[in-house]
Nucleic acid binder design. Sequence first.
DNA 1: GTTTAATCGAGACGGTACGTCTTGTCTTGCC
DNA 2: GGCAAGACAAGACGTACCGTCTCGATTAAAC
Lengths: 220, 220, 220, 220
Amino acid sequence: MADSARRTGRPRSAAADRAILDATRSALAELGWSGLTMGDVAMRAGVAKTTLYRRWTNKSEMVVDAVAVLFDELELPDRGSLRADVEGVVLSFAALLERPEAKTALMAVVAEATRDEALRARIRTAIVERQKHLVVTGRRRAQARGELPPDAPGPEGTAAADRAADLIFDVIAGAVLHRSLVSAQRVTPAWARALTALLLHGLSPAGPAAEPAPDGSGGA
Amino acid sequence: MADSARRTGRPRSAAADRAILDATRSALAELGWSGLTMGDVAMRAGVAKTTLYRRWTNKSEMVVDAVAVLFDELELPDRGSLRADVEGVVLSFAALLERPEAKTALMAVVAEATRDEALRARIRTAIVERQKHLVVTGRRRAQARGELPPDAPGPEGTAAADRAADLIFDVIAGAVLHRSLVSAQRVTPAWARALTALLLHGLSPAGPAAEPAPDGSGGA
Amino acid sequence: MADSARRTGRPRSAAADRAILDATRSALAELGWSGLTMGDVAMRAGVAKTTLYRRWTNKSEMVVDAVAVLFDELELPDRGSLRADVEGVVLSFAALLERPEAKTALMAVVAEATRDEALRARIRTAIVERQKHLVVTGRRRAQARGELPPDAPGPEGTAAADRAADLIFDVIAGAVLHRSLVSAQRVTPAWARALTALLLHGLSPAGPAAEPAPDGSGGA
Amino acid sequence: MADSARRTGRPRSAAADRAILDATRSALAELGWSGLTMGDVAMRAGVAKTTLYRRWTNKSEMVVDAVAVLFDELELPDRGSLRADVEGVVLSFAALLERPEAKTALMAVVAEATRDEALRARIRTAIVERQKHLVVTGRRRAQARGELPPDAPGPEGTAAADRAADLIFDVIAGAVLHRSLVSAQRVTPAWARALTALLLHGLSPAGPAAEPAPDGSGGA
DNA sequence: GTTTAATCGAGACGGTACGTCTTGTCTTGCC
DNA sequence: GGCAAGACAAGACGTACCGTCTCGATTAAAC
């Protein structure tokens, strides 16, 4: 139906799409989020402002699309161990966040999204989900290696596995994000190692058996 | 009070400060970062725009100050165990991030700070350090309880302790931030429990990852 | 040459021509000159914008053609005397200028024509000449009746007669135009009578200025 | 009350007013009505667009004010006879209409005014009334000279005199306007003489139509 | 009955102006 | 001399039109 609706009239230029997103990224890198203007992007892309507004309703939506492709380069090669895989993903996510167009844009669109459900959805599908599969993949690989216990069978086990992946994802991505943008400090290989160690073994030296779980719910 | 203040020669100054910051917070809550304008804040505060610019150079700097006081309410009462303390701080930070004026402002000023060193410094002193001392306190308390090993003596030990606190801080704050703003999902008590468990015991099978999670909320 | 060039291909739709000019007039009447847009005319006519631009280069040129047909309805039936003929033409021209599509368009295209020679020519042939023949006819008729002296013989006489017709035309059309559009007052039968009296007898006391104006509306 | 309402805040710049109206006239002369843009006027005046919109709601209203001052230079020196006075006013009005800023603007604002009562009022007070007093003055002067009969006494006489002045004004101004803008021909001294002759004596053979026109330009 | 070429509708395109909004600065006059 | 009120220059916003340009789909005349 979208097909039949679009059969008529001059088709949209795919070249314009590409030029706009490229221009958006370079403008972001040069000027930052608050210095980015639709008119400037249009000029850089050799395109009329109208052409931008015909495709996106917002500066934010456009920027999400422009930045989303950066996240496609995140990969998870098998580095042989869970520890190496975690360190690898931490460092490559940190490298991504060091690109000025990524760091200035990501927080800004997230800020904007706090008041815009549509934008929130777009961020989720264009960015968040693209990263999350890295965690899922890494976790499955570690299970295959015997480094992590397998999922419990049945639908409850699957749901628990999903929750686990979500949690690990928030912890890793959140730690890197907070370190490099909020604390405003470099993510070094040493830091990545320390984070990985914490993640694998936790804070407690002796493991959880020593602790009581008085309310009976915290046995996770 | 206005009378006595007037006698000292700066009658409205302190009142104006308060009125402006209150107005900023309420405008943020209603309109979000991008809807916030200096003119509107001045009007809400019953103050001229000039008075704003006499005190802050920027919208961002003003907002940092307006939001900073929200972080003063974060406290760490001794809940008796490391586990309880961590869960407590996670939930209270999450509660703070649920206030619209905090969530919309925090990410926006961080985004702005990616290109503004002065703003970065202001965020660090006004916001980040205020949270970090919670980690330091909790860690020290856990060491006193014997839940964590004591710092090694000497300057290297102190440096290592600082690094540990920084890391834990980035992990906790980052996880909560990412969960509630980027992943855009609620921080529930169950999630806080799961995060705490992961933090204390890690992913590895020696830890609790192998254990079933009876309430279905934990397990990594 | 235009013939041979046009021998092939699909011929232009005469129905489209009509629909466009009708749509132009109704849009003018509703929206006025400045509210008239090519896109709107195309939509009203059920036609693509391309079809408009294939026929006219300009909004102005199109409007001239759309309005020109209104001037075709101006006629000069023989009312038996010069006085009656003048009054008749004054009233019928005034009636034309009361139609909103005529009044809003005429002045606008004249304004536009001050900087556009091609448009000036189009106005002259499509509109001005159509009115001027009324004066020529009326003058000739009055000469036949003996109300006006005959033209002098020879080419000079013809030229003088042309000049006289031009002058009378500018005076009559100009007076009506100024009264109804610039002074923005109705052209009433009484005003038409007064104008006619002035035109026939002039201001000077030797003429009819000394005469009483029985209805109180005339007499200069 | 406007006084008390405007007592506070920075007062509007009179220099800006002047600069804007000057810029409007020069832009009109160079670009014509349809080429005139608010942004361009602001730039020429060294002023922000906001400053224009703070003073006028419309391009049209601004142009009326800008052009109105041109009509102040119209004067009616006593040339000794009614005939000379009429010829003088015809020629000076024609000279005014030859200035490109006047000719392009006058018709355009009149066209716009056909759909805008406020603009119509502004034109009336700023332009039309300024010209009309020339007719009133010339008429009174001719009555003093005995070239025209005096007004009848009483209120009816005054009303009749007003109507007469209105009519003469529409005829003279309309004829000049139509000649130079609609017919698009120059107003020459010979044409002015011919118009004056027609106005004074009318078309009828009792009048000057019977007279010789030595330069061949007059007589109807 | 094909070919051929100009037409048609639809609508995207590069431009440009619109009128509004916000920013941060600068007068004013009151107090 | 601080303050409210508000004018100011600058410039981005998102919308609207302009006149041009693809598109695919009709037409009709020419072959």
